[in-house]
Amino acid sequence: MDRLTVVCFGGTYALALGSELLRFVPGLRGRWWGWLTAVLIGLGLLVQTAYLANRGREVGSLPVTTSFESLLAMGWVLAAIALYLVVRAEPGRPSVAGAAVLGLAVAVLTVAGLWAPRTSARADWSNVLTFWGAAHGIFLVLGAVSTCLGFVFGVMYLVQAGRLKRKEGVWRGVKLPSLEQSERWHRAAITVAFPFLTAGVLIGLGLVVATQRAGQAALRWTDPKVVSTVALWLVFAGLLHARYRADWRGRRVMLLTVVAFVFMAFAMGVVGLVLPTGHGGLAVLGGVREGSEAVVGPGEAAP
């Protein structure tokens, strides 16, 4: 049933993406195409908002308690940003940024629908732990969304810079944002992403300690999820540092952002899917996998 619902709004976003991509064909640049994209995204958002609200009502908290819900929330924010970018685009022109962000939203929802675990290990948590678990999820979702935006703007910068360096004309009248604008948006996205990620990771580490002390099932410090998330934070710290260094402007920072994005996809996605982890699903991806052995038992000290 969940999968069917995700197909409903994910499919609507995919249709919107198709409609926006068709606008790159010169003969299909009428203004109403843009509105069609916006209406489709709006429709998808409406259905998804209703679904998330209902889910939140059922679990009695914000719907970020499982990987599945966290990914849905992330897709929802990305779709809303895509809608803003499409509506704000120059009339009669497709929105490159809007299409890219919408593409990411569709990708995130696809992952959610197909692979994300629907269960969480927090059933036995106290109210306080549940609250901090939700905060951990929200901060990581927001950090991940900002990272996705930084990645999109970074790639747009690299494409535009490459075109200008090669002295090529505008491709079929498709205008990318200026280098300065992409750089400014990128800086904003990365600057916003870092504190969210930091807060999310710190709360996550706090939860590990708290659950260990409470004698509940907790993660080991060597759990792939913990290690990769801390490493991701270090990569971001390096990226933010590079972002404000005079000799690390432009192309190099954008390339580093692409690396950071790939790292995030690995830490928050691939680790949860392919490596055994005892993470309970409050992160963006991962969650308790049936038969997982990585959980520290009650009373057992974490290394």
């Binding site: 010169p26 299909l28 009428g30 009669g92």
Partner: peptide, 9 residues
């Protein structure tokens, strides 16, 4: 103008 690239560049 909208449907062809006649005005582009």
């Amino acid at each position: 103008r909208e449907q062809t690239g006649l005005g582009a560049g």
